[in-house]
Structures are given as structure tokens and as C-alpha cells.
Design a protein around this nucleic acid. Structure first.
Length: 462
RNA sequence: GGCGACGUGGCCAAGUGGACAAGGCAAGGCUCUGCAAAAGCCUGAUCAUCGGUUCGAUUCCGAUCGUCGCCUCCA
């Protein structure tokens, strides 16, 4: 089955054909590095990683670009307010540059924990000021901009189909009017370049044809994507929140600049929800990967948890759900480990069904169901192992290298276990049970196997 | 105020206009076990409610209720 993907721009699932096979250009909107990423953010990067791996599984060579936004995001609405980097700087006493570096490292560490492949190219907004200025100049030369007292703005009314990807109701937005217009001509207009305010000295500011200042948020993606992937490339990804603001603006800039809609496919990962609200940085619970690790969870259990839902549906997070994922993943790992070394061949029937599911717009929940069916099948262990490891090229659960942790059991516990064995041999069942209880009370558990008793730390969640 | 999405067994979550509505976790039963664990097997949902279209709807349309998201930094 050929690869089919949902394209937000057309709102359809349609066949994916690379523009320049076998290479695929993939741009994924990266983080603004003013704070840690939470697990909701990370769900989107997991989705994008699955997408990339599916492309690779299909034999394409993926050129993957991810940006790091280290300037330009404003804390408040309508392109007013304070730069997040500068605000973070004031909060911590560090320089904006240090903060960017620190949270960039933290973000990359999170990706590693989740076994998310690194992009081919990382690019920082502050390293591409020239490119952004050039793009703005082109947009201005083509007549899509105007100047206000605080910056250069994009005039969205100049584009008849502005907001098409978001199916924006422009008239309705005007009627709603929740947005502070400032000097903007239309509610949907946005800043391309912001001027530094004379009274406040910014840590991050650059010279430009319009005056000292800094680029708006949206222009960096357009400029960098075009630089590394060309003015029209295969797939552009982001979170669902980008459907209505960021991506319409990127497309508007690209139309004004290159006369393209920048990417052939626009794909969006949907939000992780807490029991009753989405996870956001400004409110609600802020769960990081480190939070999970601190609670004793394996980060890959979170990855497994995310695989249980389709990327285009909201996913409800709860500790119970995560615990369920922990148990399931652990069982899968144990089964896989016990199969031993993989054989040379992958089961063709399961592989065909696997391909059908991943190529059907990345249906990972179906893949998991298929995995369990395969696990329970009567295929020889070597074939199962080879097949599972083949699937894991996409799932990314590191099943090839997993092995049970070796636990150190204190001598006094081992002595009790030994005494219990003696008691059992002599059929002194009461004594044997008392010893089991004592061992259990000490936090260990005994499992009698054909090879004798096995002792381990009493199972907790991880 | 405007726009939109969703509502499937205890929880998470796939899916389809028509034959048994995936899978995981939990629960219950059974097998195995001196006991226990592990493992294996088995068990359950008429798909929010009310109408409509249709030979037939959980799947299409409308309404109602509920939940959530976007419109403002946000994955």
C-alpha cells in the first residue's frame, strides 16, 4: 500500500509523492527555548518522529530541519508585550543567550530520552537574521507590508485566500474582536520586524533597513525552511494550535515571497489533554519528562503511551493510563527478550499488514494491536523477534537492546530464600509460607520457577 | 462574542453504512502451582440522548446535552 497522509491544507488523506524522490524535505516547528518542554509538547515531536521513521521505512531519504526559536516570541497578544527570552532573562538573572543555550540542551536531552531521532539540521533563529531580513525585504518589495510606530507588519488583506489552511472566518474574527488591534489594519496582520523601544536596552537586537530591532516570530520558519529545503518542499509539521495562526502566516509570507504555499503537505499533531484541560505552560499542571523520570518512569513508557492513540486525535493523559503503558511495554520487552536472537527473515504477512497500517496515515494504534497479535501467534521465536525488531524501526522502543535489570539482593534475603527452599523440600509448608511473608515484607518477592526460586525487588510502577 | 472538534465496555483507545465494534490496562473465572507469582485460556460494550435519510447507521444529516480546543504566547 502506498503512503497516505492527512494534509491539513486540503483537509484530506491523500497519497504522498515526494517532490524530488528519493529525498523528502521535512520541516518541523521547534521549541521556543525560554522554558522546559512539557510532555504535551513532546507528544508532537513523537508524532513527527514516527512520521519521519515511516518515511524512512518506505525507503525515502529524509532531510529533516528543526528550528530553535531563541528570539522574537512575545509574551502577550497581538505582537505586543515582552520578548520571552528577555523575560526569562530577567527572571533568572542569566543572559538571554545563556537561557537559550540551557533550554536548547534540555530540549535535546528530552528528545534523546524519548528516542526521537535528531533532525538532519538544527537551525537557530538568531543565526539567520540576514535571511529573515532578506525575506522581509522581498515581501515589502512585493507590496505586502506597512509600517507602524512599533514595526513592519504584513497586510493580510492583500491576500484573498489568507487563512485558507485554518479555514479562518475573517469576518467573524472582526466581529469577535477579542484582539487588541494596536495600529494594525486587520486583526490577522502580524509583525515581520519589531523595533527596539528606545528606553529599554534589549540583549537581542539587530540592525535592519527599517531600524534596530528583531524579527517577528513567523518569519524565521519561512526563511529557514526555504534556505534549507527550498521554496516549496514536501512536509511541514507542527502542533494543532499552529493551524490557525502560525501556519497561515507562514503560508502568507511564502506566497508574498516565493509565490508558493511553502510545503506540499501540512501536518499537525493534536494535543495531549490532562483529565480536564490541555497542558499549557501558562496554566495547569506542568509535567516534564524529568518529572516522569523523577517519579520512576521510563521515558519510553511515555512514548509507548503516545503510540496508543492516533496523532490526529486528542489523547487524555492520566497516571493510570501511563501505568497501563508501563505494564504493557514491560510485557512486550520481556517477551521480546525471551525470544533470544532474531532470525534472518521477517514474517512477510505481518510485515505487509504493518506497512498497511503505518501507510494509512500513521495508524500506530493498529500497529500495536498487530504487535500483540504477532506476539501471541505461533510463529517461531526467531521470526517473531526479527519481525518485531523490524517494526521497531518505526515504533522506536529500543527493543533490540533492552534487557532485564540485574538486581542486587541482600544476603539476608537470600538466606531466607534458601531456608524456605529447605522448608519446602521437607514439606514444612507453614515455615515456607512464613519465610515468603518475611521476604515480601522486606520488599522483595519470590517467584518459583522450573529453575528454582527467583528473587527480585517487589514490582513497583517502573 | 466568533470558529471548530469530540462524546465507543471500569480507564486509555482503534474502527466500519450491513455477518463476532481492534488492541492495551484493570476486573472476574479457569488452567498451572504445596501456597503464591509468572504465563496461558475465557468473560463483558448495541458505540451520549432524541429525531431524520436509508432495505439497513455506532458510522451520513439535524437538534439537544456534555466535554474540549482555537480566536492571545502555546506542540
Amino acid at each position: 500500500m502506498e503512503l497516505q497522509l492527512f494534509d491539513t491544507y486540503t483537509r484530506t488523506v491523500r497519497p504522498f509523492e515526494p517532490l524530488h524522490p528519493p529525498e523528502v524535505g521535512l520541516y518541523t516547528c521547534g521549541p521556543t527555548v525560554y522554558d522546559y518542554a512539557h510532555i504535551g509538547n513532546l507528544r508532537t515531536y513523537i508524532f513527527e518522529d514516527i512520521l519521519k521513521r515511516v518515511l524512512e521505512y518506505n525507503g525515502y531519504r529524509v532531510r529533516h530541519v528543526m528550528n530553535i526559536t531563541d528570539v522574537g516570541h512575545l509574551t502577550s497578544d497581538a505582537d505586543t508585550g515582552e520578548d520571552k527570552m528577555e523575560k526569562g532573562s530577567r527572571r533568572t538573572g542569566k543572559t538571554a543567550w545563556d537561557i537559550a543555550a540551557e533550554y536548547t540542551r534540555a530540549f535535546q536531552s528530552d528528545l534523546n530520552h524519548l528516542n526521537i531521532e535528531d533532525p538532519t539540521i538544527w537551525c537557530r533563529a538568531t543565526d539567520h537574521i540576514e535571511e529573515q531580513i532578506e525575506a522581509i525585504e522581498t515581501i515589502a518589495a512585493n507590496g505586502y507590508t506597512y509600517r507602524t510606530s512599533d514595526g513592519i507588519y504584513f497586510d493580510t488583506s492583500k491576500l484573498p485566500d489568507y487563512g485558507y489552511i485554518g479555514r479562518l472566518d475573517i469576518e467573524g474574527q472582526k466581529a469577535g474582536a477579542r484582539v487588541d488591534m494596536g495600529e494594525k489594519r486587520n486583526p490577522t496582520d502580524f509583525a515581520l520586524w519589531k523595533f527596539s523601544t528606545p528606553d529599554v536596552r534589549r540583549q537581542m537586537e539587530w540592525d535592519s533597513p527599517w531600524g534596530v530591532g528583531f524579527p517577528g516570530w513567523h518569519i524565521e520558519c519561512t526563511a529557514m525552511a526555504a534556505k534549507y529545503l527550498g521554496e516549496y518542499f514536501d512536509i511541514h509539521c507542527g502542533g494543532e494550535d499552529h493551524i490557525t495562526v502560525h501556519h497561515p502566516n507562514e503560508i502568507a509570507q511564502s506566497e508574498a515571497c516565493f509565490n508558493t504555499r511553502l510545503a506540499n503537505f501540512w501536518m499537525h499533531g493534536y494535543f495531549l489533554q490532562l483529565d480536564d484541560s490541555k497542558m499549557s505552560k501558562s496554566s495547569g499542571e506542568f509535567l516534564r519528562i524529568q518529572t516522569l523520570i523523577d517519579k520512576g518512569y521510563d521515558p519510553l513508557a511515555y512514548r509507548f503511551f503516545c503510540l496508543g492513540a492516533h496523532y490526529r486525535a486528542k489523547l487524555t493523559f492520566s497516571w493510570d493510563s501511563l501505568d497501563a503503558a508501563v505494564t504493557a511495554l514491560q510485557r512486550l520487552r520481556q517477551a521480546s527478550y525471551e525470544w533470544g536472537e532474531p532470525g534472518d527473515t521477517v514474517d512477510p504477512d505481518y510485515q505487509a499488514r504493518f506497512l498497511e497500517h503505518i501507510n494509512n496515515d500513521l495508524n500506530m494504534p493498529r500497529v500495536l494491536a498487530l504487535v500483540w497479535e504477532m506476539v501471541k501467534s505461533d510463529l517461531p521465536p526467531q521470526i517473531k523477534k526479527a519481525t518485531l525488531l523490524d517494526f521497531d524501526r518505526v515504533m522506536g522502543l529500543q527493543l533490540a537492546t533492552w534487557q532485564p535489570t540485574v538486581e542486587v539482593i541482600p544476603d539476608e534475603i537470600l538466606v531466607m530464600v534458601e531456608q524456605r527452599q529447605i522448608a519446602r523440600a521437607e514439606k514444612r509448608w507453614k515455615d515456607a509460607d512464613a519465610l515468603r511473608d518475611a521476604v515480601t515484607g522486606a520488599g522483595y518477592e519470590i517467584e518459583d520457577t522450573a529453575q528454582g526460586p527467583r528473587v527480585r525487588v517487589k514490582a513497583s510502577k517502573a
